[in-house]
Structures are given as C-alpha cells and as structure tokens.
Amino acid sequence: MSEAALLHNSLMLGAILFAVGMVGMVVRRNMIVMFLCAEMMLQGVSVSLVAWGRFHNDFGGQMLVIFILTVAACEAGLGLALFVVLFHRSGNLDITYWQELREENQAAFMDREVPEEDREKTIWPQLTPSGVEPAANPEEELHRSRV
C-alpha cells in the first residue's frame, strides 16, 4: 500500500468532512444539527491527524485524537444541557430566537428578512367529505355520556 497516496487521500477525506460540517454549521438553523455539524468538523480534523501520525510513524496524532474525543464528550454533555435549558425557555430549537440576546444597554442588532415559512406551501391534503352528516339526536344526548 502506498503510504504517500494513503496520506493524500485521507487528508482529502478529512477536508471533505470538515467542509461539509462547515456548510451545515452555517446553513442549518436547528441548534442540535448545528452542534452535530461541529462534531463532524472535529471528525474531519481527526481523520487528518491520524493520517499524519501514520505518515510520520508517530503516536502523536492518535494521542491528539484521543483528547479530541474526551473534549468532544465534555462539549456534548455541556452543550446538550444548555440546549435543554434554552428549549425550556423558548419552546423551539431555532437559533434565530436568540438573536436578540445581548447586554442590557446595547443596541439591538437583528438579522432582518430571516426566511419564514410560506403558508401556502404548507397546506395539508384534506379528504373530501362524503355522504350526509347525520343529524344530532337530542334524546340521545340526554342519556349518553360524552365520548
């Protein structure tokens, strides 16, 4: 197996993972998906580190990846605790909800024109009503418990 080609290809795979994670971090609005994308960027870096470690015949790269794993676990624990708290306060996971977060006497810097959902595109399909709606029987309502 050609070591130079293995290094080259692994670095490319690491770069692709990093780039895709970066796109996701910028493009998505769901806080948890953004966090997943940050983890994906860490994975891209880990792939590159292991490849360089093998190329230099040194354990340093793998050591660094072990510590990356540790820090990623800490980060996930703390981040998810924060997300649960933020979800309790806002009711959703949208990052734009928190764009007004600032110190007390600071001027608001708001993103205008945050895309909202098109109401017309979200109409759900409806079944056409068929038959005749039966008339309510007043006698039955007297003795029948509410269903």
Partner: peptide, 8 residues
C-alpha cells in the same frame, strides 16, 4: 419544524 424546512 419550519426552521428545518426553511433554513436561511
């Protein structure tokens, strides 16, 4: 949710 379907 809508923010997953719409994005930025």
């Amino acid at each position: 949710a809508y923010y997953d379907r719409v994005g930025w």
